[in-house]
């Protein structure tokens, strides 16, 4: 891959890749490391394979993110790390705790969905276009609308089930169903 093209791609997509990874792993250092790793893999690709470099990039990035997340121990560390950073950044402590709670809840819901549905939501609501989502998840662009509508419905159901059950244990079952 040409250096100038790679650099262009890097500058074009870095911020978004970071954002997507941050949403998945919830931690600044790891999000950055994984983002750089994704770009490094992109650099190593031969041009012939890259019809849609952005799509490929996001596919790699989400895969890296979910692999990282699946290690249960690390997830707890991420949550703690996030809370610590929030407090250190001088945010109002109540607000920081609220936010950390909300994040835990949203991530909990995402983990109970199929990985593909969770990825679909993260990518779409990070601003990716349908074509890029399709390339990232290896589905047809025509089906993105369909799958998205269903994923959104699933999310809301899980989210409201969640808020109706009291005293649920932290960190629901890790769903690796596909």
């Amino acid at each position: 891959m040409e250096t100038t093209d790679f650099q262009s791609l890097f500058f074009q997509h870095y911020a978004l890749v970071y954002r997507v990874l941050f949403r998945v792993v919830g931690n600044k250092e790891d999000a950055q490391d994984l983002a750089l790793e994704a770009f490094w893999k992109l650099w190593q690709q031969s041009p012939a394979q890259l019809e849609n470099p952005a799509g490929w990039l996001f596919r790699v990035a989400t895969r890296l993110g979910y692999n990282a997340l699946r290690a249960a121990k690390r997830r707890e560390r991420y949550e703690l790390e996030t809370a610590r950073q929030a407090l250190e950044s001088g945010q109002d402590p109540d607000r920081a705790v609220e936010r950390a709670d909300e994040r835990r809840r949203v991530r909990g819901v995402l983990e109970r969905m199929t990985e593909r549905d969770a990825q679909l939501l993260v990518l779409r609501y990070s601003g990716l276009a349908y074509k890029e989502i399709a390339a990232a998840l290896d589905i047809s662009p025509n089906s993105v609308g369909t799958l998205l509508a269903r994923a959104e419905e699933a999310f809301e159901k899980l989210y409201s089930d969640d808020s109706h059950s009291e005293g649920r244990s932290e960190g629901g079952p890790h769903a690796s169903r596909r």
Binding site: F10, A15, F22, R23, Q32, Q85, G90, E102, F155
Partner: peptide, 20 residues
């Protein structure tokens, strides 16, 4: 809901140039 997962203050990415 998903916006809650976004980087907050102190969690933002470094600039693309320093990341590069």
């Amino acid at each position: 809901h998903l916006a809650v997962l976004d980087p907050g203050p102190g969690e933002a990415a470094h600039s693309a140039s320093s990341a590069f």
